[in-house]
């Protein structure tokens, strides 16, 4: 997978250009997938865009659904709950991702360090477990572990003489508990991506550096870091997209509560659309989220696929 990940540029000039310049053939191969994705991706999105300009409440099926211009967007712009949810999502992001990267780096370094290969294999395989766990189930596990009365988190705290902590009933602690479950689930991802970066460091360079200095940190900082930067960029952008999408874990663990303490943006839009039934406003919110996602995806392609 060296360098050629950017579309458009062939790895080498085609020996047989007429074969690969055939538009009709390219179209035949692409058409089914494009048609399918247009039908289930673009068409609904356009429909959502149309709905975002309408008054449309599912709870009032008999009401007309007139076009009301930008009213829904104005409602969203002046809706403190929407900005609250977006702000909370941002807070979640800046809380969780640095911890995941730091822990992931420690794990990756431990897995990269020579020796103890049996235990390393065991640890690396165990990382698959959080990754394979359905986020909805991770939320259920979180709800059990952080139960105030019989949760194992409070039992551990009691063992060291602290607590009991009201985890899911308290606004700050519920946020922390959801963050902890997310850290459990996604730190392995960060660790594996960073480990893949570490294995890219040429062995000779790493060993030469080891002869030069005994400082572990200096090796990380000056020898391994340059190879880790692409991994970190990927983690940042994928995790950002994931957290903007995040629904399952929060829904099963707290339903966004207590109050709105853990209501991240996707959970909030789901509530407006399917529990308040205001499809018009929810669509406007979804379109704004979509725009944010597209901007992020652009950044992703720009920084990850062009400049690395």
């Amino acid at each position: 997978m060296s360098s050629g990940t950017q579309p458009g540029t062939p790895a080498k000039p085609a020996v047989f250009p007429t074969m690969w310049n055939n538009k009709r053939a390219a179209f035949a191969f692409l058409a089914p997938a494009v048609a399918a994705l247009a039908l289930i991706g673009i068409f609904p999105t356009v429909f959502a865009l149309v709905n975002s300009f309408r008054r449309y409440n599912l709870a009032k099926p008999r009401d007309p659904t007139p076009f009301i211009g930008l009213d829904n967007y104005l409602t969203v712009l002046y809706d403190p709950s929407f900005w609250g949810a977006l702000g909370r999502t941002f807070m979640f992001l800046v809380t969780v991702v640095p911890i995941q990267i730091a822990l992931g780096l420690i794990i990756a370094l431990l897995l990269h360090k020579p020796g103890l290969s049996g235990f390393k294999l065991l640890a690396r395989l165990s990382l698959v477990i959080p990754l394979a766990t359905a986020p909805a189930v991770a939320g259920l596990i979180g709800r059990l572990i952080f139960n105030r009365d019989f949760g194992v988190a409070n039992a551990v705290l009691a063992f060291v003489g602290a607590g009991p902590v009201e985890w899911l009933g308290d606004t700050t602690n519920a946020f922390i508990a959801v963050a902890l479950m997310d850290i459990w689930q996604w730190t392995p991802f960060c660790a594996l991506v960073l480990l893949a970066g570490l294995t890219m460091v040429p062995t000779e360079i790493e060993e030469a550096a080891r002869l030069e200095t005994k400082s572990r940190w200096q090796i990380v900082r000056y020898v391994q870091m340059p190879f880790l930067l692409p991994s970190v960029t990927v983690i940042l952008i994928l995790r950002t997209a994931d957290i903007l999408k995040m629904f399952d874990t929060v829904f099963t663990m707290t339903r966004g509560g207590p109050g709105a303490a853990t209501e991240l943006v996707s959970v909030y839009i789901q509530r407006v659309g399917f529990r308040v039934f205001d499809q018009g406003v929810a669509s406007a919110q979804a379109i704004m989220l979509l725009i944010l996602t597209i901007v992020l995806a652009r950044l992703y392609v720009k920084y990850v696929y062009r400049e690395v």
Binding site: P7, G8, L30, T45, K245, G273, Q279, L290, T293
Partner: peptide
């Protein structure tokens, strides 16, 4: 070609809620 590829990838980042609202009505 690049735009097409990019469009495919953008869909991967799309929040399900964006599509879930209209898909439900449809």
């Amino acid at each position: 070609k690049e735009e097409l590829w990019f469009w495919f990838i953008t869909n991967r980042m799309l929040s399900p809620i964006v599509v879930a609202l209209p898909i439900f009505i449809m």
